[in-house]
Structures are given as structure tokens and as C-alpha cells.
């Protein structure tokens, strides 16, 4: 599923009109994501990282600047951009396999085969006919991932997908996601507030700053997969990211 479609974000800004005046949610963002990259976006709450993700998804079209995937401008949601929400958002009246198929029919042998393959990819064999209420949070999120993958997205956008899960489940799902990424070469953009998660997954970490939301630094992570959180290389990059955060904090205090 590799395509030569680059995601290009150019002078992207977004402002809210509020009674107190204009609020800059995003101010002049510029970056580019190559196909097959794994980007994580990290930053303090209110830095507009989720807004940025929704703009790339086409769910939010009220912005200035340009966001293009390949040569096409992103102006509405679509199957090229898969989206995973923080909550699983499964259809409660559909079983696991029907949730994955969603609008497609399982009677179609092609869909059937793909759904079966995805169920084994996200390790949910035996739960094909379970309803969402019978699943744990981690399992539900895996169904949501399978649902997005069925549409062969060129880019998969994940908005703090593991934020509500316990540490053990989170680690497990991070590995599931890495497996999928290495198998399918889908471009991944994942928003998180967990520094370790951002380094564990990404080949580039995008650090954002709040008010106005902008990219303060992009940290490349040149560590081989699978990564070890305890390794010195990992810790060195962690140090770098922490320093960046401290600097941002410091600057903000000085400005006040």
C-alpha cells in the first residue's frame, strides 16, 4: 500500500473569534510527512495538537494555509485518512466483525477475507461475534484500529488512542501498532501527552508549544525497532525532549 503521497502542511493557522479577542489556536505551522513515516505529536494541553490532527483528517476545515496529501487539498474526511479517536467509538449494536466492516457487507468474500485477516492482526480471534459492551477498553480500541485499517488509509491519524488505558494494555497496543506499521507501511501520525510513548513509537517527534500553538522543535529518533525504554539511546532522546519542554516552560515564565 505504499504510495508516493507526501503530507504537506504549509503556513497553517487557525484562529477562534472570542469576546476577549482573537485566539490563535495554531500559528504558522510548516512541516512535511513522508510516506511510511511514524510521527508523534506531543505538547501541553491546549497546544492545538488535536485540532491539527482533525484538520489533517478533514474533520475541521476552518483554517488558513494549506494541507495537502499528494496533490489533493484535504477539505473533507475520507478513507485516505483513517482516524482513531481517544474513545473507541464503536457502534454498540454491531458485533466486532460487523463493526470492522461497518458500511461494507461481510457477504462480500473480499471484505470477509480482509476482516478475518485484520481480526488476527489485532489479535481478536474468538471475539468476532462479541458486542462492544463485552470488550475491554484495549480490545475495543483494537477493533477501532482494525476498522480504520480495512479502508487501506494512506495515513492513519490517532488522537491519544491509548490515553484512557492502563499502562500494561498501553504497552501492548503500542507494540500491536508498531507491528501494523511495519507490515503495512501506513503513514502514522499519533497525538499523545506521554513522552515515553512518543519516543517509543516515532521516527520523528514533533514538539508543540501552546498559545499560540506552534511547532517548537522536531526531534528525530534514530533508534532501531523494537526499542527498549531502558536503553541509553532512548534515555538520551528522552533527555532532549524534556529539555525542550523545560525551555518552553522557562520562556513562558520570562514572558510573563
Amino acid at each position: 500500500m505504499t504510495t508516493s503521497n507526501v503530507l504537506q502542511v504549509s503556513s497553517l493557522s487557525k484562529t477562534f473569534e472570542k469576546p476577549q479577542g482573537k485566539v490563535h489556536v495554531l500559528a504558522d505551522l510548516n512541516f512535511q510527512v513522508e510516506p511510511g513515516e511514524f510521527i508523534t505529536i506531543i505538547g501541553p494541553s491546549g497546544c492545538g495538537k488535536s485540532t491539527l490532527l482533525k484538520i489533517i483528517a478533514g474533520l475541521d476545515v476552518h483554517y488558513q494555509g494549506s494541507v495537502t496529501l499528494g496533490h489533493a487539498k484535504i477539505d473533507k474526511p475520507g478513507r485516505r485518512q483513517g482516524f482513531i479517536f481517544q474513545e473507541h467509538r464503536l457502534f454498540p449494536w454491531l458485533t466486532v466483525e460487523k463493526n470492522i466492516a461497518a458500511d461494507l457487507s461481510l457477504k462480500d468474500p473480499e471484505v470477509r477475507a480482509k476482516v478475518d485477516a485484520l481480526i488476527s492482526t489485532v489479535r481478536l480471534q474468538g471475539f468476532e461475534n462479541a458486542y462492544p459492551r463485552e470488550l475491554s477498553g484495549g480490545m475495543s480500541q483494537r477493533v477501532a484500529i482494525a476498522r480504520a485499517l480495512l479502508r487501506n488509509p494512506e495515513i492513519l491519524l490517532l488522537d491519544e488512542p491509548f490515553g484512557a488505558l492502563d499502562a500494561f494494555t498501553r504497552n501492548h497496543l503500542q507494540n500491536v501498532l508498531l507491528d501494523i506499521w511495519q507490515q503495512n507501511k501506513t503513514t502514522m501520525i499519533l497525538v499523545t501527552h506521554d513522552i515515553d510513548e512518543s519516543i517509543y513509537l516515532a521516527n520523528r517527534v514533533l514538539i508543540m508549544d501552546a498559545k499560540p500553538g506552534r511547532i517548537s522543535r522536531i526531534v528525530p529518533v534514530d533508534l532501531p525497532y523494537p526499542r527498549k525504554r531502558s536503553s541509553s539511546g532512548f534515555q538520551a532522546i528522552r533527555q532532549k525532549v524534556m529539555q525542550e519542554f523545560e525551555q518552553v516552560e522557562h520562556m513562558r515564565r520570562v514572558e510573563r
Partner: peptide, 27 residues
Amino acid sequence: SRLFEVARVLEFSRLQLITKLIVPAAL
């Protein structure tokens, strides 16, 4: 309304929005 966002991402047609989301949810 959060499921409507899902339906937009999955590109449900108008008819699918009715038969796959609204009617089952209102059942």
C-alpha cells in the same frame, strides 16, 4: 453525535447514515 463523526470518517452515504447509524441507534 460522536458517532456521526465516525460516519463522516468512514464516508457513509446519506442512505447508509440512515440505515447503518440513525435507525439502529434510534431503535
